[in-house]
């Protein structure tokens, strides 16, 4: 008896939550709350800040969405971001041109993406351990290159680029928007996008349809690493320095953003725009807590709580889907 009642109540909640995206709901809630507490929250400078911070998080969260949709995970994303920044900075310091420095970063990112992808797609190794291992490799290389110290003093062109505006939109926000548009097209308007969704849903069926599923699976990791590697340029532009460990922890926020946005670890169920909502929710949370002068380390705890909430929502949804299926 009690079992049925519980199930019914859960399904009711699930129905409610699946009608309104959880991350969107939490986002609106926080926006209202923070504005009431401190009207400075909605000032133009602060909102611009939120936009800039969100755009950097999105550079990780968007490719992470594709990776999680293949029932995978990339714990090395933050380390790669740090390493890529270091490579750009060191290359610039060594007198390379900006494009050459970017090319160097690109090469390294693609190599690591390929390493992750080969081990995960072709050898079917669990993504979380593989990327934990490559995370170690990347962190190590970044530390070795810098001896653990921040790298600064390279051409100000990078910072200028970060602070520039396209028309009236800050360049980082424009880039994040362009990336969203590009990945949206890829995911929802190309064959490759279908295959990405199919890998998480039923890789064998994709194989039976005559597609080289492993290659597509590998491509997802390579694409993700490429985007992350290039976004390092924005990261080092923000502070005009590269720090080998600056990216560590960013992968957690990226994963949290994706999960908050309703992308599930199962069956290729994902939502690209959810990552935008999730990233916004996390940035707004951090920003609001900042305004309330709550310690940045406690903010991570709050993100963890937000994540658990999101996972509860994910589960309630799944149970609802299972019951109605």
């Amino acid at each position: 008896m009690s079992v049925t009642i519980q199930l019914q109540r859960r399904s009711g909640m699930g129905q409610f939550l699946s009608a309104i995206p959880g991350a969107g709901l939490l986002l609106i809630l926080m926006l209202v709350l923070f504005t009431i507490v401190n009207p400075r929250f909605v000032s133009q400078t602060n909102l611009m800040n939120v936009g800039l911070q969100t755009s950097l998080l999105l550079m990780l969260a968007l490719p992470m969405t594709l990776i999680i949709m293949t029932e995978g995970l990339d714990l090395s994303a933050g380390a790669l971001l740090g390493l890529s920044g270091v490579i750009v900075a060191e290359a610039l310091l060594a007198g390379w041109g900006v494009l050459a420095a970017c090319a160097a970063t690109l090469a390294v990112s693609i190599a690591f993406g390929a390493l992750n992808g080969v081990l995960i797609a072709y050898l079917s190794l669990p993504a979380f351990v593989v990327t934990l291992g490559t995370m170690g490799l990347m962190q190590g290389i970044a530390l070795v290159l810098t001896n653990g110290d921040p790298v600064g003093g390279f051409t100000p062109a990078i910072e200028t680029f970060y602070r520039s505006q396209l028309w009236f939109i800050p360049t980082p926000i424009a880039i994040a928007a362009a990336l969203y548009a590009a990945l949206w097209l890829l995911l929802y308007r190309t064959r490759l996008g279908n295959y990405v969704i199919a890998i998480g849903g039923n890789k064998d069926a994709l194989r039976l349809a005559g597609i080289r599923a492993n290659l597509v699976h590998l491509a997802v990791y390579v694409l993700g690493s490429t985007i992350i590697g290039l976004s390092a340029v924005l990261l080092i532009g923000r502070t005009n320095s590269a720090h080998p460990t600056v990216g560590i922890g960013m992968e957690f926020e990226a994963i949290a953003a994706v999960v908050l946005g309703g992308t599930s670890f199962e069956k290729g169920q994902g939502w690209l725009f959810g990552a935008v909502l999730g990233a916004l929710a996390i940035t707004v949370l951090r920003n609001g807590l900042n305004i309330l002068s709550i310690d940045s380390s406690l903010q991570v705890v709050c993100i963890g709580i937000l994540l658990i909430l999101a996972l509860l929502i994910d589960q309630a949804r799944k149970q609802f889907v299972r019951r109605t299926a």
């Binding site: 081990l119 351990v129 593989v130 934990l132 291992g133 490559t134 995370m135 170690g136 490799l137 990347m138 962190q139 190590g140 290389i141 530390l143 070795v144 001896n147 653990g148």
Partner: peptide, 12 residues
Amino acid sequence: TWHPFVNGAVVL
């Protein structure tokens, strides 16, 4: 500074 690299390599 090589330690994380070595640990990662050993895991892989």
